[in-house]
Amino acid sequence: MAEIQLKSVSKRWGSFVGVDNFDLTIADREFLVLLGPSGCGKTTTMRMIAGLEDVTDGDILVDGRRINDLDPKDRDVAMVFQSYALYPNMNVYDNIRFPLKVRKVPEAEHDARVRRASEMVELDEFLHRKPSELSGGQRQRVALARAIVREPNVFLMDEPLSNLDAKLRVSTRAQIKNLSHELKVTTIYVTHDQIEAMTLADRVVVMSKGVVQQVGTPTEIYDNPANTFVAGFIGSPAMNLVEGTVSGGVFEAKRMRIAGVGAPDGPVVLGFRAEDAAIAEEGEITAPVYSLELLGDATMVTMRVGGALISVKADKDYRIEIGETVSARVPAGICHLFDPDGGRRL
């Protein structure tokens, strides 16, 4: 059992604020993803939970017990890092077993626990090998097994897939998803990759410049972004965002006019997803094609509208030349509206 509470947690180095007033309760057995660009404070937050970084203000509680002053070894957390941090002179078996020796677990239990952990990440046939004889994906699985063998209260994973190639990332992501289902241990996972966040998380915390921007399920964050930062960060491609003005329920920007927009008159940022719009004979946008990307299951058409590049998902067989003029339907009902000052959702 491990419910984690962060109460007004901040981290400062002099005048620089790394994490600002972070408030959150992470439920027992929840898979929580901290998501954001480099320098947003996500790894610092994780390191404070692990005890590798001191908290400047606020409290961290595990099952109601304050752990701010506990050493990392006394916090019952297991970390998986971006770098695999394996011992090169030990084989896979001994790398996985090492935490049991350090924690003075009775030796009679070692073999069964090592083999259970290695089986979960499909490493049984590699137990005799040294790390130098393994691929990147296999090394990361050794690091996962070494965390699993501890049977900790909390897993902390810091960008564990970022050193893997695209295909391995997909298969290892599936493995982590399956492991979290099997192990049912509270997991905090740090990434800058929004696809990882969307596919793995029970809930996502989107961060920017040390501040939490939005907390919600992947669906909530995708469908109802709290502000333009979240809208522009989540999704592949990210949400289209266009600056314009509303007058009498009509949104207007260069090459773009949408009637039936429910916003007061004045400047506004309008957003919509590429898959919610459609290429059409006549539409709310008419602009030259900037680029065309064949994705296999669809064709992504990008147009330049004023100062923004707008993407619209078309049928996989759709073809057009760059520079040709195209129209797209953007119904008012699919649009999101944001305040141009500060970017909050209207």
Rank of each mutant, 00 (worst) to 15 (best):
M1R: 14
S10I: 01
K11D: 00
K11W: 05
G18I: 05
V19A: 13
V19D: 07
D20R: 15
D20V: 12
F22S: 10
L24G: 06
R29E: 08
R29S: 02
E30Y: 06
V33C: 12
L34D: 10
L35E: 09
G36I: 04
S38K: 07
C40I: 10
K42P: 06
K42S: 10
T43N: 14
T44N: 08
T45V: 11
R47H: 11
I49H: 06
T56N: 06
G58Q: 09
G58D: 02
I60S: 13
D63G: 10
G64S: 09
R65M: 03
N68S: 06
D71I: 01
K73L: 03
K73T: 02
R75L: 05
D76F: 05
V77Q: 12
M79G: 04
V80E: 07
F81G: 02
S83P: 01
A85E: 07
Y93V: 01
R97L: 15
R97Q: 15
R97P: 07
P99K: 04
L100I: 00
R103V: 04
A108M: 00
A108E: 13
E109M: 04
D111Q: 13
D111P: 02
V114P: 10
S118A: 15
S118T: 12
M120N: 01
V121L: 00
E125D: 13
E125K: 12
F126M: 09
R129E: 03
S135R: 01
G136Y: 07
G137H: 02
Q138H: 04
Q140Y: 09
Q140C: 01
R141V: 00
V142P: 12
E151P: 10
V154Q: 04
F155I: 00
E159R: 08
E159Q: 12
P160V: 00
S162H: 04
L168F: 01
R173Y: 06
A174D: 01
I176Q: 11
L179K: 03
L183N: 01
K184L: 04
K184S: 03
K184E: 09
V185I: 15
I188P: 05
Q194M: 06
E196D: 01
T199S: 12
R203C: 05
V204C: 03
V205Q: 03
G210I: 00
Q213E: 11
Q214G: 11
Q214M: 08
G216N: 13
T219S: 13
P225F: 05
N227K: 07
N227V: 10
F229T: 01
L241C: 09
V242I: 14
V242L: 06
G248Q: 09
G249Q: 08
V250M: 01
E252T: 14
M256H: 06
M256F: 15
M256A: 05
A263S: 14
P264G: 02
P264D: 03
G271D: 08
G271L: 03
G271W: 10
G271M: 06
F272W: 14
F272Q: 08
A277N: 07
A278M: 11
I279A: 08
E281A: 15
E284D: 11
I285R: 05
L294H: 14
D297A: 15
A298V: 11
L309P: 02
L309Q: 12
K313L: 15
D315K: 15
Y318F: 15
E321F: 07
I322S: 11
G323K: 04
V326A: 03
V326E: 10
A328K: 04
G333R: 14
D339K: 13
G342K: 14
